[in-house]
């Protein structure tokens, strides 16, 4: 199975402080990978690095033939400004960016695709609603509809199931499973360990560094989780310089 993303001793962070450092590994095409770890472990930063929005402080990420638009990204819902006056249809239609770009208009076929995507996530008839009127679960459904339209081979999900109800999680997990069946690569940052054990065959456990990476049952062994929990949470300006490079 060929690797779609290769990480070579990658360190990602801000202002000389690593959010996560020295990750080596390969993400196979069609992988369904959960990224777990405590708050501040570097999970979201890793996603930003994988999609190219954050340049590594060290090492390199090999994306092969993947272009920028081949990687779809679902940001954390908290990063959205829900007071902005935009309708659900327009937000979802941005999933067609690869075709419409900065200036292109929406053709009738595009509008039909947006309507189909809305219908596929159970938001039929919600198109003309302002995003500020949606519940957390409905907004997440809309963002999944946008991902459907992006039709990308690699999909990065940052806490896709945070603060949404069980029914919505189940519906959205079905979409994730379908992507997996279609051999798309899905990488999701998650906190619900039971859900990870149930639905994600492969897991990367992070705590500023990779603690474990492999089959989920192996990666989430109690001793591994304890090791991850011992991670220092705050940046430390007096922390010694990392010795891995010097070694």
């Amino acid at each position: 199975m060929s690797a779609v993303l290769k990480l070579h001793d990658v360190t990602l962070g801000y202002d000389r402080h690593p959010a996560v450092h020295h990750i080596d590994g390969e993400i196979a095409e069609g992988a369904l990978l959960a990224v777990v770890g405590p708050n501040g472990a570097g999970k979201s930063t890793l996603l930003k690095g994988l999609m190219g929005a954050l340049k590594p402080l060290g090492g390199r990420i090999d994306r092969g033939a993947l272009g920028r638009r081949d990687i779809a990204y679902l940001p954390q819902a908290a990063e959205l400004d829900r007071s902005f006056p935009i309708e659900v249809f327009d937000l979802v239609a941005m999933g067609l960016w690869r075709r419409v770009g900065l200036f292109g208009g929406l053709r009738r076929a595009d509008r039909e695709r947006v309507a189909e995507a809305l219908s596929a996530v159970g938001l039929e008839g919600f198109g003309r609603r302002a995003i500020g009127t949606l519940s957390g679960g409905q907004l997440q459904r809309a963002l999944f509809a946008r991902l459907l339209l992006q039709d990308a081979p690699v999909i990065l999900l940052d806490e896709p199931f945070a603060a949404i109800d069980a029914r919505t999680v189940a519906d959205l997990l079905q979409i994730v499973a379908r992507w997996h069946d279609e051999r798309r690569t899905v990488i999701a940052v998650l906190h619900d360990m039971e859900l990870v054990r149930r639905a994600f065959p492969e897991t990367l456990l992070l705590a500023r560094r990779p603690v474990a990476w492999g089959p989920t049952a192996e990666a989430l062994k109690p001793e591994r989780l304890l090791e991850a929990r011992a991670m220092p949470e705050a940046f430390d300006d007096r922390a010694p310089l990392c010795g891995v490079h010097a070694a």
């Binding site: 999609m51 929005a53 920028r68 638009r69 990687i71 779809a72 990204y73 940001p75 954390q76 990063e79 959205l80 400004d81 902005f84 935009i86 937000l91 941005m94 960016w97 690869r98 770009g101 900065l102 200036f103 995003i131 946008r146 992006q150 940052d158």
Partner: peptide
């Protein structure tokens, strides 16, 4: 388009453009 998208969802805009 980028101006509006940067307001509402800067993370997404950064991922596509």
């Amino acid at each position: 388009r980028p101006l509006a998208l940067e307001c509402v969802d800067p993370g997404f805009l950064g991922s596509v453009s």
